[in-house]
Design a protein around this nucleic acid. Structure first.
Length: 510
RNA sequence: GGCCCAUUCGUCUAUCGGUUAGGACGCCAGGUUUUCAUCCUGGAAAGAGGAGUUCGAUUCUCCUAUGGGCUGCCA
């Protein structure tokens, strides 16, 4: 057992915006690293130049920054194991592919993509299993196993395109112990001779991944379940490269599933079911299509992260609200589930509501200012904070406070029609008029005074709340429901309140 | 099709052989509230099916079913 410092990496491919499943993978890596006093490394796996999407790498960094998953090493922060972008490490990989050829664990293959497509098509038409380049079929293909050494050399010298494939042994059981899943075993007869080095001079994921993890001294590979089938190949690569001693341990995470039906959560599901699948908004550089993001939808990153942490992991206690530090302290890979987790948007909203309540009124007031500003309303954080203090208990998002409480910031322009129809009549009109006069005479305009005064009025008139309240609310807020009228009036202040009552008496039908 | 992985309330999950199978979201009912929301109380709701091991299986093994992943010179 080595005493190596824990080093993990998150290795996304910049082929588009990072989706929430990717953020969770990054999060688990981060939590594991911090829990063990280790390093969290961000490595960009851009070996497929055809799928490169401009802006994707920047998006990944911004998404992690917003999520407060901060890399210790990476292209943007530096480190002693760089570069951290595989396209800039291109020169490193070839030597390892050559090493594998020399040791007999890899070979040149000259078959073109078209050749292979044809083979697959033929197999499909014959109704047989998928065609694979493996220990059986390789003896019928153009490669350095079937061709003479001289012909191979001639083709190489002539600059003919080729790839380098791993040469898998026959009928060998490859076993490894996954931290989350336990022992996993695959027979090499069921695996194929994967391409390690492409004809464009770039390594494939398989080679680059192993080489980089080794060179960067990665101790634990924590990645999605979609990699489980190729893990045995990676095990073999470590063995053939002579790196078994320092081979990282593997942990394959369960997938995030769509809320309804089954299958991996995808961008489409978010559009279809009305929730974001991306942490940040993303504008597709080609189509200009916009995909919504949690940040733009008004989620606190802490709520988003807390929710993600619980999708596939739990601490075994009944605590559900965790700060990042608490997550770090509580996290263990052993408590990660094996089965995929369906995403639940309702629970996500609930998490946000919980975090909303954790903020004090002043903080909420400050958070409201930019939204108010956007509406052309200029006020101060203190006033917005007062509004937040009585509106926050009915809000899931900061913006709910405005959606349901715009009347705090501007007088009602329209009055709720239903309430107008049902509750506004000669009697309620008279009550508002009477209240107006009483309120005008008040010296103090706090909630308690107003309530007492209002109730005294009810007693005097020998009437009930139901006869007076709705009309009063309508006159001041234009709404039929909402927070305590006394709180509302106290915040609006005497002048504004009586002014609105007066306006209502003028504007509303007699 | 083949290989691999998985399977507890609608959803996220607890349980590491013996529990009235617990919690949370959501849902329903009642209470509080002038109203809405909050809050409080209560309720409905689960071990895929079948064998085996065991004094005893949700828990261990096997089979079946179902679901998922992979099966590219993509990651």
């Amino acid at each position: 057992m080595s005493e190596r410092k824990v080093r993990v990496r998150f290795a996304p491919s910049p082929t588009g915006p990072l989706h929430m499943g990717g953020v969770r993978t990054a999060l688990y890596n981060y939590l594991f690293a911090k829990k063990h006093g280790g390093d969290f490394i961000l490595r960009i796996e851009d070996t497929d130049q055809t799928r490169y999407v401009p802006g994707a790498e920047d998006y990944i960094i911004q998404a992690l920054t917003w999520s407060k998953i901060i890399p210790d090493e990476g292209q943007s922060v530096g480190g002693n194991y760089g570069p951290y972008r595989q396209s800039e490490r291109k020169h490193l990989y070839r030597a390892y592919a050559d090493q594998l050829i020399e040791s007999g664990h890899a070979y040149y293959a000259f078959d073109t993509s078209e050749d292979l497509d044809k083979m697959r098509e033929l197999a499909k038409q014959a109704g047989t299993a998928n065609w694979q380049y493996n220990h059986v079929t390789r003896s019928h293909m153009k490669n350095s196993i079937t061709l003479s050494a001289q012909e191979v050399q001639e083709r190489l010298d002539a600059g003919e395109p080729y790839v380098i494939r791993i040469k898998l042994p026959r009928n060998e059981e490859v076993k490894f112990e996954d931290i989350i899943r336990g022992w996993v075993s695959v027979n090499t007869n069921n695996m194929d001779d994967k391409v390690l080095f492409k004809s464009d001079g770039m390594p494939t994921y398989h080679l680059a991944n192993i080489v980089d993890d080794h060179l960067m001294e990665i101790t634990h590979v924590i990645r999605g379940e979609e990699w489980l089938p190729s893990a045995p190949l990676h095990i073999l690569l470590y063995r053939y490269l002579g790196w078994e001693e320092t081979r990282p341990q593997f942990a394959h995470l369960p997938l995030l599933l769509k809320p309804d039906g089954n299958g991996k959560l995808s961008k489409r599901d978010g559009d279809r079911l009305g929730f974001p699948v991306f942490p940040l908004q993303w504008k597709d550089p080609e189509t200009d299509n916009i995909s919504s993001g949690y940040r733009e939808q008004g989620y606190f990153s802490e709520a988003f992260i807390n929710m993600l942490a619980f999708l596939g992991w739990n601490p075994g206690t009944e605590q559900e609200l965790f700060t990042m530090q608490e997550l770090i302290d509580a996290f263990t890979l052993e408590r990660v589930n094996k089965a995929g987790a369906k995403f639940d948007h309702e629970k996500t909203k609930w998490f946000n509501q919980q975090y909303l309540r954790k903020h004090n009124d002043k903080e909420l007031g400050e958070l409201l200012l930019p939204y108010l500003d956007a509406k052309g309303i200029h006020t101060d954080a203190e006033y917005a904070g007062k509004v937040a203090s009585i509106m926050k208990e009915r809000a899931y998002f900061v913006t709910d406070i405005l959606d349901e409480g715009m009347y705090f910031f501007e007088p009602p322009i329209n009055y709720d029609e239903k309430t107008l129809e049902k509750k506004w009549n000669a009697e309620s009109r008279m009550h508002v008029e009477n209240l107006l006069h009483r309120f005008e005479a008040l010296e103090f305009f706090d909630s308690e005074t107003l309530e007492k005064n209002f109730k005294d009025y009810l007693t005097e008139k020998e009437t009930g709340f139901g006869k007076v309240g709705p009309g009063f609310r309508l006159a001041v807020t234009g709404q039929g429901m909402g927070a305590s009228m006394f709180d509302i009036c106290a915040i609006l202040g005497k002048q504004e309140t009586v002014g609105r009552m007066r306006t209502a008496l003028e504007k509303l039908p007699a």
